[in-house]
Design a protein around this nucleic acid. Structure first.
Lengths: 335, 335
DNA sequence: TTGAAAGCGGTACCAG
DNA sequence: CTGGTACCGCTTTCAA
């Protein structure tokens, strides 16, 4: 006898000679059931290979035990790391995850949020750089606990996590400046997006402060290939650049590739920096000087906020201070 | 007025002065609705920021418009690429995806499959190397269309996609042999798993055929770090290895890192090969000689099988012939 | 063209 | 300890 896709509680009940209420009880470990009855039910469930209809369950129960995670670009290990951190916390708490990817499109962000709401998720984490103006309004007063990373503002039921990019970029800039770099390139993606733009802005602020620091920018997709193309563009416009500050590690690795191909040595001819400190940053050649953002901690914070009532309501904001990680991709500016 | 989490069809109906049936009709573009009525309903929906309860919807409708994807290790870009390929096909067909990760554990595979069945997915793709003996039985006769990659056997409603590893590994082996390599290391993970083991087996078969080809193996986790550790183990046991055949690109990149650290040049001192031809294989240094597996094609095939009735029932098997991609990480054996 | 009402497969309260 | 039953929010006949 093989399990049918449309097996229902009732059939299990009939086979175990009990009511559906009782089957439900043993399934959920709720209420009290005589152990012999429980055994009978369990046996029936096993024999029928019954698996409960989760839709019916969460409809009747009114709750869903799944939390939604929306990210801008799942191909970038930075987002994946956070996803996995959240997943771990969720699983140990008995929750499931559903993921959605926006590719940095704010329309897709809105669509994804609606989808998550439709699924009546118990909580929602949006790890995104893009933002839709009305989204907060739509989310607000909607009862569902939300955590935003990088965007949005704290409200009731809305927690924020942000990184102090200013601090990170200032450290990076003064480090490069101290190494003698005066012509720096900033390599980004999606220039229009707030959090991305902020990193550039800080760099420009620093440039203004130092007076003799010149900053050129270029942008492309948030991928290895994008980093590579962005370097081409950058060097075409400013061939004498001595340091390239990349918005993240993935693009930096793409940049390394193009530089190598052009016969430019890193860091002897050009210094390169990443951002995020993903695993790959240690495995590329040369290993990347970068800025560490603690994905584990972010994941844990998200779990805290979404999976227990107390913290959820606090409308707090967490600010993360990133720290510089020195490796092999940076050195004194070439003469 | 802001949308409430518990907004229901009934409230929309009341506001638009129609019945819930009518609202349902405009929501699903089913049946006929007078255009003025439709407009009124649409307006109400918009004003209330209503989003339908997907659980109720699929419970009542009996179908779910979401397909499940289970992978062994989402951190390995190989799986991610397939996931994204499936996602693209699914989205254009109006389906959603839910993903589950097993970390190569067959218990987690079973759990994940049950979860997907509980969600009453319209189709299920299992891109996994591990397998549970009873799983096919459980799935079979369950009505839900399934595609297995790498494992399982075709049945009614079960399609199989497999890669001709034998062919790929034979090509690789004879290529290395022709370059003069006689002491080869095979670097894998989860030696116990069928598809992984198959690649090794082929290598060993070849070794037996060539007589003077010596093969040592080592295994660790399917990660960059795992590749690195596996090389340490391998070189500790067989320091005179001249070529390292890695089970996939990710581990190969990890291997490159360790070799570099030891001052071993690739390919002058040691040749290294990957498998899969993920993007990263072109961006590491040196770029990897590898074997291409067409993830896009796999993704499309999966979509075909899961999202239209005809192909779904065919109980077919697709075999993919991988092809060798020569890059910089291989060369003549050192003297 | 629209509305009333019977489910979909569970959960949980209330009796017994 | 167990069974009966009223919903959960939406889809889908069947009538009007």
């Amino acid at each position: 006898m093989s399990g049918r896709y449309d097996m229902k509680l009732e059939q299990v009940a009939r086979r175990a000679r009990v009511s559906t209420a009782t089957v439900s009880r043993v399934l959920n470990n709720t209420g009290v059931v005589k152990s012999t009855t429980r055994a009978r039910v369990l046996k029936a469930i096993e024999e029928l290979k019954y698996s409960p209809n989760l839709h019916a369950r969460s409809l009747a129960g009114g709750k869903s035990r799944t939390i939604g995670v929306i990210v801008s670009n799942i191909e970038n290990p930075f987002f994946l790391d956070i996803y996995k951190a959240v997943e771990e916390g969720a699983h140990t708490a008995g929750y499931e995850l559903v993921m959605a990817n926006t590719d940095y499109s704010s329309e897709r962000l809105v669509t994804s949020v609606r989808l998550m709401i439709g699924r009546r998720v118990a909580g929602l984490a949006a790890i995104v750089s893009e933002m839709d103006g009305d989204l907060i309004e739509e989310l607000n007063g909607n009862g569902i606990p939300v955590v935003f990373y990088d965007v949005g503002t704290p409200r009731r039921n809305i927690t924020n996590i942000r990184v102090n990019y200013r601090r990170g970029m200032e450290t990076l800039t003064s480090y490069l400046y101290s190494l003698g770099h005066r012509r720096i390139g900033f390599l980004g993606h999606h220039a229009a997006l707030g959090p991305i733009n902020e990193r550039l802005k800080v760099l420009l602020d620093a440039a203004a402060r130092y007076r003799d620091l010149e900053v050129k920018t270029s942008a492309d997709a948030d991928t290895l290939e994008g980093g590579r193309r962005a370097v081409r563009e950058l060097l075409a416009a400013s061939p004498r650049t001595t340091a390239i500050v990349c918005v993240n590690d993935v693009m930096a690795v793409g940049a390394l590739r193009e530089l190598r191909e052009r016969g430019l040595r890193v860091p002897e001819d050009v210094s390169v920096t990443g951002f995020d400190n993903v695993n790959l940053a240690q495995f590329c050649h040369p290993a990347l000087t970068t800025v560490h953002i603690p994905r584990d901690q972010i994941g844990r914070t998200i779990c805290d906020c979404l999976m227990n009532r107390e913290t959820a309501l606090l409308e707090q904001e967490f600010v993360i201070d990133p720290e510089l990680v020195l490796r092999e991709s940076t050195g004194p500016a070439a003469a």
